[in-house]
Design a binder for these strands. Structure first.
Length: 666
RNA sequence: GCUGGCGUAGCUCAGCGGGUAGAGCAGCUGAUUUGUAAUCAGCGGGUCGGGGGUUCGAAUCCUCUCGCCAGCUCCA
């Protein structure tokens, strides 16, 4: 009799009699399996533990702390929550309830909105049901029968999903194309019954609710049915679940940590920036401390760009409507532009992008192939009308400064130019303390080449150039079809912050469209006119957004070279003030940003203040220091380092004034 | 833009069965002359986001509006 081979999470294998459900194996071998394993993988597909595998098959058990296991755990918790909601609000109608990155949600149509205060009641009901060890029972039935069942229950959303499945063979009509061929066939669907709650669901699920030990409902939000703003707004309840209470605790702690690092709060506390209602949403005031950091960033940025063969330019904030007409912005970007002003009968519009200006600089003279590549860079401030609901601190604003540049080059130069941009971008991000990146190559959708500007040949050439660069870089990247802009393929660079969050900052975009629109040319070696390629690129994205990310990444405790105040000098008492001044003057002369705190407070108070405002170095000077020309140094977050000669500190700090990774010279 | 929630001193918040506002921190003044994460005392500070309404009377009730927060959608 053929057995089934079961691979345990630790890699060992166990034999299972054929004809037995997988759950039988849980009580053999390691006794802790029953508590850890939530599902299994058979032929690459996740299945529930009640599955009876065919003889001779190999099955891999999925523990709750594996990515797939966690997904299933959360999915099952979403069902448990739905069951609780149904018990408390019998009129509720259920839409969809999937697991998501850090938890799960369920979209529910409730007769009246659920106040957040009622979440604990739902959670309590969940615990009640959880304790009953209700099984997740899988029922398969013909689609038509499932339709009748859901109609009978008044589950109009489930009915709609079933109708979609009937029509397209999948519950995701938007994904019909990509799912072609793998759509469900056979006309049967699966339902899962948990207590009184019955849900249309592909599964799999954990065997019973006892497996769901650590969960928490986190918040409520509205969400459109199928993400369509013209369809009903449902109540979305978010929650999260983990295999153990400790893991849940840890996750909640990380959320707290994110709150502590919130750049909006730190921005106020550290006096970095503000956004004032009187000025308008999404418009940023950089206060002196924030402005100093910006200045350091900009100086670094300019220096690195000049070294890499960029020429820096400045351009106006407004331009005639005609320019935006030629660039095409009026036809495809108008909704995002601030409305114009009329001057002398001419309409002027505020710039949402810098490219048309750089293009006109290019076009200001006849260019020869010898002039290329021409790299024009600018910290250009642009304004975009973003819908009010998307604004968020510095991360999404209406007025921002892009670290922009446009590279005009010959087609055969594209590859090396793109490689250079990456070689500039990554060390620069590293200098700010970001060492992990995520690269995405967005290419055209080969089935819809009609919607793109430029020729097929241009696209193939550009896409292969970008791909080659990425491959040569040795870094991993994702390749996404159909995500390219209509005007060309692109590479997006996201950085990963200290909490593991991804932020898209840099972008490198090839553009076949603008050179055409502005009729750009250069004289080639053959003496004839040719069309240059154009590359839009930003490394940090926008200074506002990058600053926001930087604040959160460092939790406001900026590395020394960026800190607005680098050294706080604290005279112990009034008679030490002249020496404190001398110390400050000498540090200042060495280029160190220093502040004397001679307030009428005890040293402890002023140290606390310097720590709270995250000053990296604190120098205390009293009788002992005055006498021997010393300074007592304390580094942020650490204990005292003791007294040292002032010279020594100056030498040490002078070396730390520049970013740690300046990158290779040109 | 949409749904829900929230706007009280610079910040964090209390007060809200309607009777013209309060704490802590911050700030200022004074005493103290301070040695590594908060010295003591005193003082000032709010047209309760803004407009309109109900009422003898509104921070509190209603309504419109602006802004913020969460989420959705969007993100060239």
């Amino acid at each position: 009799m053929a057995h089934v081979e079961v691979i345990l999470p630790d890699g060992r294998t166990e034999q299972l009699h054929s004809g037995c459900p997988l759950s039988d194996v849980l009580h053999k071998g390691g006794s802790d399996l029953a508590g850890r394993v939530v599902a299994a993988r058979l032929d690459g597909k996740a299945v529930g533990l009640s599955t009876v595998p065919p003889p001779g098959s190999r099955v891999e058990l999925l523990p709750a702390d594996s990515p797939d296991g966690l997904y299933i755990l959360r999915h099952s918790t979403a069902h448990l929550m739905a069951a609780a909601v149904q018990a408390l609000y019998p009129d509720a109608k259920f839409a969809i309830g999937p697991p998501v990155e850090n938890g799960f949600y369920y979209d529910i149509d409730l007769p009246k909105p659920l106040p957040a205060e009622e979440l604990p009641a739902v959670e309590a009901k969940m615990r009640e049901l959880q304790a009953e060890s209700l099984p997740f029972e899988r029922v398969e039935m013909p689609l038509e029968e499932a339709l009748r069942v859901m109609e009978g229950r008044g589950e109009t959303y489930k009915v709609e999903i079933l109708e979609t499945i009937r029509r397209y063979g999948t519950s995701r009509p938007d994904a019909v194309e990509e799912l072609k061929g793998e759509a469900e066939t056979g006309g049967t669907v699966s339902l899962y019954q948990t207590g009184a709650f019955l849900d249309l669901c592909r599964g799999p699920h954990v065997p019973d609710t006892a497996f769901l030990r650590a969960f928490k409902l986190t918040h409520i939000a509205g969400a459109y049915w199928r993400g369509d703003e013209h369809r009903p707004m449902l109540t979305r309840i978010y929650g999260t679940a983990f295999p153990t209470a400790e893991a849940l605790e840890q996750h909640l702690y990380r959320l707290e940590e994110a709150k502590r690092r919130d750049h909006r709060r730190l921005g106020r506390e550290l006096e970095l920036f503000s956004i004032e209602e009187e000025i308008g949403p999404g418009l940023v005031l950089w206060h002196p401390k924030g402005a100093i950091i910006r200045d350091v960033i900009e100086t670094f940025w300019r220096k690195e760009h000049r070294r890499r063969g960029y020429q820096l330019v400045y351009t106006p904030h407004v331009a005639r409507a005609h320019l935006w007409d030629v660039s095409g912005h009026l036809s495809w970007y108008r909704d995002y532009m601030f409305s114009g002003v009329e001057v002398e009968g001419q309409e002027y519009l505020v710039k949402p992008m810098n490219c048309p200006f750089h293009i006109l600089i290019y076009r200001s003279q006849t260019r020869s192939y010898r002039d290329l590549p021409l790299r024009l860079g600018e910290l250009g401030t642009v304004y975009r009308y973003e819908r009010s609901g998307v604004l968020h601190g510095l991360l999404r604003v209406r007025g921002f400064t892009q670290d922009d540049a446009h590279i005009f080059c010959r087609p055969e130069q594209l590859e090396s130019e793109v490689a250079d941009v990456l070689e500039l971008a990554l060390p620069m991000l590293r200098a700010f303390g970001f060492s992990e990146y995520h690269l995405v190559l967005s290419v055209s959708d080969p089935n819809h080449m009609e919607k793109y500007a430029g020729s097929l040949e241009q696209w193939e050439r550009a896409e292969s150039a970008l791909e080659t660069v990425l491959e040569k870089s040795g870094m991993t990247f994702d390749r996404v079809k159909g995500e390219a802009a209509f005007y060309g393929p692109k590479i997006d660079v996201s950085l990963v912050d200290v909490l593991g969050r991804q932020w898209q900052c840099g972008t490198i975009q090839v553009d076949f469209n603008m050179p055409e629109r502005f009729d750009l040319g250069y004289i080639g070696e053959d003496g004839k006119s040719h069309r240059p390629l154009m590359v839009h690129r930003a490394l940090l994205g926008s200074l506002e957004r990058f600053f926001g990310i930087l604040i959160e990444h460092h939790g406001g405790a900026f590395p020394f070279w960026l800190a607005p105040v680098q050294v706080a000098v604290l005279p112990v008492s009034e008679r030490h003030e002249p020496y404190a001044q001398e110390v400050a003057d000498r540090l200042d002369a060495a280029g160190v940003r220093v502040e004397i705190d001679d307030r009428n407070e005890k040293v402890g108070y002023r140290i606390r203040h310097a720590e709270v405002t995250k000053v990296p170095y604190i120098g205390v000077v009293g009788d002992r220091e005055v006498e021997k020309g010393l300074i007592s140094v304390r580094e942020r977050g650490r204990r005292e380092r003791g007294a040292m000669p002032l010279e020594e500190l100056i030498r040490e700090l002078s070396e730390a004034l520049y970013p740690p990774v300046p990158g290779p010279a040109l």
